[in-house]
Design a protein around this nucleic acid. Structure first.
Lengths: 146, 146
DNA sequence: TATTGTTATACTCTATAACTATA
DNA sequence: TATAGTTATAGAGTATAACAATA
């Protein structure tokens, strides 16, 4: 004890992340959306045929949590769900026109947000940030209590 | 459009932060606490005479939210609240013995967590991470919608 | 009137457990 | 039995609005 210590790095990451997340949520709300809707829509674009379980895994959520979000988005008219005729346990998820429009609006808002975020920071520095964050994540996952 | 774009930096920060936050919450839970309790206890140690408003500001929360957390901690026997005789609107918050013990347990857990996080990452790199995160936070705060 | 804090209420995100339908 | 998803329920965290007490 008594060693001189740098300030907790986890605290710094968490604090900045909170600031960023809130601002991002505001930006998406201004575009008529939310972070959860944006992440789900993006994931559906990346992996159009995904099952709900796959979506949940991609977003690191439980299936029940995914159901919750998708039900909300269905209620809001962004997506439709219908049974896969080949395997009726599976739901096929599709974007409605409103969902497509929302996706484009949110993509624009997310892009502008990121643009704002990067302002005045050298690209190499941002690249190194990404690498360092990956190292932190790896350190956490190694030591994880299973 | 069509410009080659680096992956969204906000997404990367948010994703890693979520991983970190969850692991940190687990670590604190294993020490019999929670992140909110830890942050409040730490803040009380840093600024012992703080009013609830000051605590709320320091943690970027609303007063009502602070009341909520403090009531929980009082219920759990970590703190006591009593009126300041000089200004009876203000509550003086003090750690109980159990609160002191919790603080030390959580400080230890938090320290070990941070140790794990830093493993294998050069100190200069971590320092630069902190700086870059500060730049990101500044960029967000400038552009904030007031 | 302004300040400090509480209460009542509600919303979002997340989770677990028990369930249905399907394979 | 195993898989895909839903429903019911709950808890944590946060917020706003209305309020009480105090200055």
């Amino acid at each position: 004890m008594g060693r001189p210590h740098q300030p907790p790095i986890g605290l710094a990451v968490a604090r900045v992340a909170r600031t960023l997340t809130r601002a991002f949520e505001d930006a998406l709300a201004a575009a008529g959306g939310s972070q959860s809707a944006w992440l789900v829509l993006l994931q559906l674009k990346i992996n159009p045929g995904a099952t709900q379980r796959e979506l949940a895994d991609a977003l690191e959520l439980r299936e029940a949590t995914m159901t919750h979000h998708l039900s909300g988005m269905e209620r809001d008219g962004l997506i439709t769900r219908r049974r896969d005729p080949n395997n009726r346990r599976v739901h096929q998820i599709e974007l409605t026109d409103a969902g497509e429009q929302a996706f484009h609006r949110l993509r624009k808002a997310a892009g502008e947000f990121d643009e704002r975020l990067r302002t005045g920071i050298a690209p190499e520095r941002l690249a190194e940030l990404g690498d360092t964050l990956a190292l932190l994540a790896a350190n956490v996952q190694h030591g994880a209590n299973h």
